[in-house]
Design a protein around this nucleic acid. Structure first.
Lengths: 194, 194
DNA sequence: CCAACAAGTGAGTGATTACTCACTCTATCT
DNA sequence: AGATAGAGTGAGTAATCACTCACTTGTTGG
């Protein structure tokens, strides 16, 4: 139980906690790919390189697993926003917001972080999922507002255009040569896929 | 085959087409409720009051059924936008857009039309679903642009705030008394649920 | 050496579900 | 009357999947 008696003394993670880490990472990938309902827990287990039975030992239900993945997603977004904010020194609120937009665009280049959010919205009739979506959103909005000092309107616009970005990606219209698609994607930053 | 020899001569729908109608309506309700993966075809059949076997006779796969429901959703949105536009005479583009926003807010009061779109985004890795999402979006954007005559920026903003509205609804933060929630929902019209 | 426990798994199980098929029933046409 | 065709279904089937459990293995403290 205590680190002095633990097998791995190099880190402060026990074996089980190391596994939890690996499982959440695998869950992020697997759930992002197919969503909550369509992803079998076996896919997460395979991604983490362990048996399905052990996944269930560490995360008793698939729901908890998904919630952990969504939570991780929001934590990562927060970290990226903070890192982006730090690249601009003595900036105006709008400049910091702009840098955050850059950071977010880079983050979602591989779609995983974006799709997890969309899947969470889709599964938001499950109370625990709605709850983690809400708390993640709260963290992002509160953080952006406080860190940038931007107006409420600017922060709201920031989130709204983030959502537009999700729509553009799911409908896959970034590189469509049509007028309506260009209209929607105008000025939306978009890093090329990995 | 031809209406002169048909059983029901009062309408121009054959029995099968009447059933198709009922099935799409039931599909809209059922899929909106639980999404593409989590909705069994039996739920649609029950909603339409017919056997599951017959649903499969008219819609050979669940995928086609879902696509039909999404298509219907966009058709209904377009109709609502048109009806809203017609309520304003000699309006500026911004006035017409505003009226359309009212219409949309009223339409999604019962969440069905909203959730179907979110579920479609979530299942957009299925090519046919991505396709119907894209074509629906194209119809809406093109229609709004042409009918209002608004600037590209204004139309883009209209769609972006529509998406924000979806997020607010899925996370269920309309009536949350917290600052961050009020910030997000500021000036977002919201008809009370039915 | 042994007791105790944590890590880990193979092999189920029961429920669900997309899709099929052989069949019935009713109405119309000749 | 008999043939034909469309509307409609009951009863499957094969696969998938969330979750369980009895079990093994390796480690450690006494």
């Amino acid at each position: 139980m205590h680190s002095l008696t633990m097998k791995y003394t190099r880190t402060n993670l026990s074996d089980a906690d190391t596994r939890r880490e690996a499982i959440v990472e695998a869950a992020l990938v697997a759930f992002a790919d197919a969503g909550f309902q369509a992803t079998p827990v076996t896919a997460v287990a395979a991604g983490a390189g362990i048996s399905q039975a052990y996944v269930f030992k560490l995360y008793p239900t698939k729901e908890e697993l998904f919630v952990a993945a969504v939570e991780r997603c929001f934590t990562r977004i927060e970290a990226v926003l903070e890192a982006s904010a730090q690249t601009v020194v003595n900036g105006t609120p709008d400049e910091i917001l702009y840098a955050m937009g850059d950071g977010y665009a880079a983050l979602i280049a591989d779609r995983k972080m974006l799709m997890i959010q969309v899947h969470a919205q889709s599964a938001s009739d499950v109370p625990a999922i709605r709850e983690v979506l809400r708390s993640g959103l709260k963290r992002i909005v509160s953080y952006v507002k406080q860190r940038t000092g931007a107006s409420d309107e600017a922060v709201q616009r920031f989130i709204a255009f983030g959502q537009l970005c999700h729509l553009i990606t799911t409908a896959d219209i970034y590189d469509l040569g049509e007028d309506w698609a260009r209209l929607l994607a105008r000025n939306i930053r978009h890093a090329p896929a990995l």
